[in-house]
Amino acid sequence: MADQTVLQFFPLSTSLSAKVHPLVIFNICDCFVRRPDSAERVIGTLLGSVLPDGTVDIRNSYVVPHNESSDQVALDIDYHHNMLSSHQKVNPKEVIVGWFSTGFGVTGGSALIHDFYSREVTNPVHLTVDTGFTNGEASIKAFVSVNLSLGDQQLAAQFQEIPLDLRMVEAERVGFDILKTTAVDKLPTDMEGMEATMERLLALIDDTYKYVDDVVEGRVAPDNNIGRFISDTVSSIPKISPPAFDKLVNDSLQDQLLLLYLSSITRTQLSLAEKLNTAAQIL
């Protein structure tokens, strides 16, 4: 009975998830645009690390040239190793975590390439980026391979989709306005950014006001959850007595003014010194 042969998937179930840095998407798109005329798709290596909670953090990528015929895929393995060692010179912490390919979902040749990457790293992630917008939407998916085995004998491999985190904090930092359009004439200055942010905040406050007014007057059905959120937000403003608050604000204002004053003095000093220097030279 000990030698029972069991038909099973290995690993049984995966609680794996992946996280993508916007740079990876940008790089894949750029590679796809620059692909050779003959190529239908681009394939490449994903670099990153596995976070302590098991999430695969995909932070970098590079394309690997390949040749594809009906049932064969030939990857340029030399190129792959060269590029890998170059990348590791810059950032040794980034290791192979998987591979990407453009196109919709998994195709026939994928299993072969996946096999190759399985030899480089255990349980690689396969990322597909649909650059053709097959379904009319940008679908980016991540898969891991699950082996179907009968006892010790491997029967087949199955690609299982894993959740992919596409929230792009880094891209938000740069600003979607810059990354979204095909041409931006000028980078926003800090004051312009500030203005936009304040406008957005104002719009949010207006929305909240409107919602509360509507609820009070019975135009909209009240939602307890939203109500709780609003009361949490309002109560998160610290209670400070008006005089104390005024003092706080005024103190900070004065600090800032002092700094401004100092920097103005310095500037005046600089231009004065320049004038004096030129005068000294003429003498």
């Binding site: 796809f32 938000e172 740069v174 600003g175 990354l179 979204k180 359009t181 719009a203």
Partner: peptide
């Protein structure tokens, strides 16, 4: 700043719905 049309399409699709961003 310039972006390829492909990137632009992807970013428009992936932009978060929330009205507030990290910046």
């Amino acid at each position: 700043v310039s972006n390829s049309a492909l990137v632009s399409a992807f970013m428009t699709e992936l932009e978060a719905d929330s009205p507030v961003t990290q910046s």
